[in-house]
Design a binder for these strands. Sequence first.
DNA 1: CTCGATCCCTGGACGC
DNA 2: TGCGTCCAGGGATCGA
Length: 300
Amino acid sequence: MPELPEVETVARGLRQAILGRRIISVTLGKTDFIDDPSALEQHLPGRQIEAVERYGKFMLLRLSAVHGETLVTTNGDSATASLLVHLGMTGQLAPSPAAQPLQKHTHVCVLLDDGRELRYTDARRFGRIAYLTKALLAEELTGFGADPLEVSQEEFAERICGRRARVKALLLDQSVLRGVGNIYADESLWRAKIHPARLGAKLSGKEAKTLRRALQDILRKAIVLRGSSISDFLDAEGEPGEYQRHHRAYGREGESCHRCKTPIRRAIVASRSSYFCPRCQPSPRGFAVLPLSKKKHKKD
DNA sequence: CTCGATCCCTGGACGC
DNA sequence: TGCGTCCAGGGATCGA
């Protein structure tokens, strides 16, 4: 599923592909994941895509003003509006020639001034799209935690060690760190040799340091390799990422740990499948490893 | 504050 | 072959 490295990969691809393009029109399919569908049709045409940014797992397409519009708005707010896109589990955002047949589950087509269409496809529709003025965007982005790639060791330790929740839950909590999902949480915990069910407050300062280092190294490497593709993820060029080849924990139940050869185990922590090495990542006292079915699962 | 449950949704895996 | 069931997961929401 798209987490920070995947969203960053898509954002970079779109930056290359559609920066500066002007929007001609918008065509919508199913709209139950769009905040205000008519706002897209009404406010996107005529605007230029001036920037593509990432904020956590969100993508932000910064839009130019439409000529004349600032004159009729009360505060000039919509002059710097954005299109916010969350890819959810299965969202894909990529340009294609307007003449190209629509893929299944294509729900938004944004016709550009160069004859291409920016298309959003999302089978499960766990994603989200919203047209937001500057003020609404600012409101939308409050409450998110630190960027895991930028966070200082001090702030990281505060955000993790000051909490009694399980470290896995904290890593997944977007109000603690923005952008980390199930794959990169498990991968960094494996690298740092920390069991996902450990409580944040029980981590030593050294462990917090190791965890931040692991998380940042892994996210950077994953970005270089254009993200992880398990089953669905494709970047803005329609290409899969490569980082799944480097997974050491996620999705590897029963396979041997790359450090100690012990079979990787899976347990539910923070309501999520969590993969870990039972030897390298000793479980905290009181954590019972529940028997789990021997099914395999490959998702994105 | 923290947790689990529930819902959203579809496709893929699996059992029969 | 085909149907039913389970499950994946980010996020919102609600109750314990």
